[in-house]
Design a protein around this nucleic acid. Structure first.
Lengths: 157, 157
DNA sequence: TATTGTTATACTCTATAACTATA
DNA sequence: TATAGTTATAGAGTATAACAATA
C-alpha cells in the first residue's frame, strides 16, 4: 500500500517506464485489429518502402532473417502482404502490401492517433510538441533508426 | 539503406522507441554488475521498503508471486538479499538487503546516473528537467506506480 | 562457393497450476 | 478452509544453426 519512498526518478527511468507502458497499451489496441506489434512494424516498413527483399527488411529492423519469415507468414496468411518472386533473381522476394493490407494500415494509423491522444492526455498541444522534440533529439543523438522500435531486436555482440 | 519515408513520428511512438532503447542500454550496463533488470527492480523495491513480504512485493510490482520467488532465488544465491522468517506468522518472509546488497545498490545507483547522462547527452540540464517533468505528468495521469517498470509485468485481463 | 529464404531446434522469460507448510 | 511461499509445467517470443534453391 505504501510507496517505496524513493527519490524522484531520473529522466532515463521515466522514459523506460512510460515507454514500456505505451508499448503495452499499443499492443492491446492493435490486438483489436488482429495484429501484434511486430506485425504492425513490418507492415509500416513495407508500406514505407515497397519492393524490398526480406534480407533488407531484416537488416533495417535489426532482426534475424528467420524472424521476418515468421512474421511475414502470419501477415501473408491474413492476406495483408504478398511476396513477389524477383524476375532477375528468383531467390529474392519483393515485399508488397495487398489492398487489404493498405486498408488495415489506414485503420492502424487512425488507432495510433487515438493512442497518442490518450497517452498524452496530461499535456496541452504545445507541451506535446515540446516532448516529441526532446525525444526526437535523444533518438537522433543515440543513433536510433527512424520508425524502428528496438523492442523486438536482435541481441547485440 | 534508404529511410522508410514515413511522416514524423508521434510522441507515443517516440516514447516507446526511446524507452525500449533506454531499457536495453540499462540492461547492458547492469549486466556488468552481474544483475538483470528485474533483479535491480526488486533490489530497489526492498531497499525502499525493507521487511515487506513476497506477496506484498509481488502485488506492488504487478507480477505473480512465483516470479518473485525466482528473482529472489538468484539474489539470495548472490548473497544480496535475505528472507527472514516471520516471528508471529512463520509463513511470512520479511525481505531485507544484506551488506553486500546495499553495496551493490550503491554501485547500481552510480551506474544509473551515468546511464542517465549518456541517454540525455543531447539535452542541456534545463531541457532534461523539462523532459522529466513532462514524462512524470504522463506517468501520473496514466496511473503508473512510481518506481515500477511495467516491462516485466503480469499480462492484463 | 556465396546468397536468399526456409525449417528445425533451443533458449529465455513469464504465467498458470499444483503442492507444502503454516495458520 | 485460507494464505505464504514453492515447485512443476507450459506457452510465447526470439535467436541459432542446418538446409534447399538459386546464383
Amino acid at each position: 500500500m505504501s510507496g517505496a519512498g524513493q527519490p524522484p526518478q531520473g529522466a532515463a527511468f521515466l522514459i523506460a517506464q512510460v515507454g514500456a507502458h505505451a508499448a503495452g497499451r499499443f499492443a492491446e489496441r492493435v490486438e483489436e485489429l488482429g495484429l501484434t506489434p511486430p506485425e504492425v512494424g513490418l507492415l509500416r516498413m513495407i508500406a514505407g518502402a515497397p519492393g524490398r527483399s526480406q534480407q533488407s527488411v531484416a537488416a533495417y529492423m535489426g532482426v534475424v532473417p528467420s524472424r521476418v519469415v515468421a512474421i511475414l507468414d502470419t501477415l501473408d496468411h491474413k492476406g495483408l502482404v504478398e511476396r513477389r518472386q524477383g524476375a532477375t533473381d528468383r531467390r529474392h522476394h519483393a515485399l508488397h502490401l495487398t489492398d487489404d493490407g493498405r486498408q488495415v494500415l489506414m485503420e492502424m494509423r487512425q488507432l495510433a492517433r487515438a493512442h497518442d491522444d490518450d497517452l498524452c492526455a496530461a499535456l496541452d498541444p504545445q507541451e506535446r510538441v515540446q516532448l516529441a522534440g526532446l525525444l526526437q533529439r535523444i533518438a537522433d543523438q543515440q543513433g536510433l533508426t527512424p520508425g524502428v522500435h528496438p523492442g523486438y531486436r536482435q541481441r547485440k555482440r
